[in-house]
Design a protein around this nucleic acid. Structure first.
Lengths: 220, 220
DNA sequence: GATTTTCCAAGCCGATCGGTCTAATAAATC
DNA sequence: GATTTATTAGACCGATCGGCTTGGAAAATC
């Protein structure tokens, strides 16, 4: 019925939309500084004005690009999920490394990322998840979906390790990936609280020892 | 120099302080409802007025008992830590049960506690820890100290299990208790996000399998 | 140059924030 | 009853909250 948006419109009339992929465009800048601030302080504790001041963007622009603070938060989740998916791909798809080494590489990268910010920034998804009781309901499904996505990618990596013989056959890699992300988020939370990497190291070491336990037990 | 407070003052002049141990006293009621609300929504997202309305206490009383919202938050942490320490004692000191069973009992109790509130309430300490970036600095040390206390109590229980032969000798129970609380808080966070107990179950099962792995591995 | 649309800029709104203040009331001693 | 202290009660304050509004500048088409 209504005129469908064709793949390539013949032309638009007025001023064309700014290329928002440019990293210095206001929208992209808002998302970047938004992630930086919210990974540190969460959603409820941060006012729109603080983000505006930090990104040096006037209020009019904010409500031009995002309909509300809630809409902005949802866009932040998407941006963070996309950023993190690229990061996971980079490590988990590195054919040069043994599968289990890829997991170690990711862990080391995440650890140094937290160190770089003085252990003040955590994980956006974990942060917002903890705040869920005070957040608009649409956040819940998106956050849960992001975790599922990360676990899927991790499970693939673990299955590759299993195929390589680095993880005992009987283990269910989906459950193991689930276990990893449950605990890893706890470790990130704790590292942020203590401003120290200890929790990351303790969990990572325990997890890796766990999946190789059968190799470390008494040999037959 | 100054008149020291003797063990038993001869008498006070005016109206004596109300017995605040009475569970219906305003101060106790504020702490109770404060824990209930903050375990669900956190600190920053909750206004003093909301707590006042829910506890049915006027603002004057609040600022009579607590100097500020921050002071109230610190008192909440102490109250919650005391409540939780009693809970841990109840389970971990139950001489009727095998040490490892005591840990299982605690886990089951915590799980049913979350279920009772529809998985809407998490752990106050974990919640505030995640918010730390937006919280007054004094919160940090208290929260970290609470975790250390819980881990100490847990480690004692694990050592008892080790003495009973239910955990392999070589394992360091302090590290293991640390690992447990890092991951358990992650599981609580996740269960709250998903409003399901799955994360609690996955982590608990994984953890328990982990400490008994050597018994499950190939026998010599 | 007129028109159309995008984007920038900021003043302003009502609501809510944490916190203060004053007055009244209650419960004890003197 | 006078005094002293504890507690209740809520109006009120300036600041900040998320969000709306209006106006104009910029960039394209016609």
């Amino acid at each position: 019925m209504s005129s469908e948006a064709s793949v390539s419109e013949p032309r638009r009339r007025g001023r064309p939309p700014r290329d928002q992929s440019h990293p210095n465009a206001p929208r992209a800048r808002l998302l970047r500084t938004g992630v930086a601030i919210l990974t540190e302080k969460g959603f409820s504790a941060v006012g729109v004005d603080e983000i505006l001041a930090s990104a040096d963007v006037p209020k009019g622009s904010f409500y031009h690009y995002f309909g509300s603070k809630e809409a902005f938060g949802l866009a932040l989740i998407d941006a963070y999920a996309a950023y993190f998916a690229r990061k996971l791909n980079r490590w988990f798809d590195d054919a040069e490394r043994a599968p289990l080494e890829r997991l170690r590489d990711f862990i080391a990268d995440a650890r140094s990322g937290m160190a770089r910010h003085g252990y003040r920034r955590g994980c956006l998804v974990g942060n917002l998840g903890q705040e869920m009781g005070a957040l608009p309901e649409p956040f819940r499904m998106r956050l849960a979906a992001v975790f599922r996505d990360w676990e899927m990618r991790t499970s693939r990596c673990l299955r590759a390790a299993q195929a390589a013989g680095d993880i005992p056959k009987g283990i269910d890699c989906d459950s193991l990936a689930h276990f990893f992300w449950i605990g890893w988020e706890g470790a990130v939370l704790r590292a942020k609280l203590e401003r120290r990497p200890d929790a990351l190291d303790v969990f990572a070491r325990g997890f890796l020892a766990m999946i190789q336990a059968n190799d470390m037990g008494p040999r037959r």
